[in-house]
Amino acid sequence: MRRHKWILAGLLILLAAVLYVNLGQGSLGLWEKGEKEAVAKSSQSLTELLAAGAPKPGTPSPSFSLEDLDGQVYTVGGERDKALLLNFWASWCDPCKEEAPDLVTMAKKYSDSLDVYAVNVTLYDQLDNVKKFVQDYGYTFPVLLDKKEEIYRKFNGVAFPTNVLIGKDGIIQEVIVGSLSAKDLEAKLKKLTNS
């Protein structure tokens, strides 16, 4: 419950900053033009603000190293033998629970051409809950622990789940905020593994 408050507080601060900037640029007059137009402009500005620091498709993935649940270190950055799906998640996240079976299926199906790393943002979670989640959903791929939220920040994470698709060349192909249907996820993975 506490972690939800922090996330909500952060989003409210960002929204307040966007509104402050918009009002400071004379956007107060937008209310005269209609409420819809003002809300649309504020929403667009918030989206732009949130995405401003995010790694973009076509750019190299930020480099990092993290330990998994067993203490083994995994490194990301630069060229790889296989494409990579980075899945940022938390055990209390309902959409993460919904997509977990699909991740397991895709990891098995594409194991020859795809690595899947489940990056638990442990700062917002509890290790016992992480271990239970992994056991309940049968994760067989590495579960990395982002204990200080440093890696999630590198990817400008704003919501769980966030999936980052990285090619064998180490270049980000796509950043997906929120879950996808199994069909849509597979279509993106086919494209990723065939490139």
Rank of each mutant, 00 (worst) to 15 (best):
T105L: 12
A107L: 07
K108F: 01
K108H: 14
Y110T: 02
S111L: 01
S111N: 12
S111W: 05
D112N: 15
S113L: 09
S113N: 15
S113D: 15
L114Q: 07
D115T: 04
D115N: 15
D115S: 11
Y117F: 15
A118G: 15
A118Q: 03
A118F: 02
N120T: 01
V121C: 09
V121P: 11
T122E: 14
T122C: 01
T122F: 07
L123Y: 03
Y124L: 08
Q126W: 10
Q126K: 14
Q126N: 08
L127K: 09
D128V: 11
D128C: 02
N129S: 11
N129H: 13
N129M: 08
N129P: 00
N129G: 11
N129T: 01
V130H: 13
K131N: 14
K131R: 15
K132H: 13
V134T: 09
D136W: 04
Y137E: 00
Y137P: 08
Y137K: 01
Y139A: 11
Y139R: 04
Y139H: 12
T140G: 10
F141R: 05
F141K: 04
P142N: 09
P142R: 11
P142W: 12
V143P: 06
D146P: 13
K148H: 05
K148Q: 13
E150I: 08
E150W: 06
E150M: 10
I151L: 01
I151F: 00
I151K: 03
R153E: 12
R153Q: 11
K154F: 06
F155L: 00
N156E: 10
N156D: 02
G157V: 06
G157S: 05
G157I: 06
G157K: 03
V158E: 02
V158R: 01
V158D: 00
V158A: 02
A159Y: 07
F160S: 03
F160L: 13
P161L: 03
P161K: 06
T162P: 11
T162S: 10
N163L: 12
N163Y: 02
N163R: 00
V164R: 08
L165W: 09
I166E: 03
I166R: 13
I166N: 11
I166G: 12
I166A: 13
G167K: 15
G167A: 15
D169A: 07
D169M: 10
G170A: 05
G170K: 02
G170S: 04
G170T: 13
I171G: 10
I171H: 09
I171A: 07
I171N: 07
I171Y: 05
I172G: 07
Q173L: 05
E174S: 12
E174I: 03
E174R: 14
E174W: 06
V175D: 00
V175L: 05
V175K: 09
V175Q: 03
V175M: 01
I176F: 13
I176G: 08
V177A: 08
V177N: 08
V177W: 11
V177R: 15
V177K: 15
G178I: 08
G178C: 02
G178V: 11
S179K: 13
S179Y: 06
L180W: 02
L180M: 11
S181H: 01
K183S: 08
L185G: 06
L185D: 10
E186Y: 04
L189F: 04
L189N: 09
L189D: 09
L189Q: 04
L189V: 13
K190A: 09
K190F: 02
K190V: 06
K191L: 13
L192K: 11
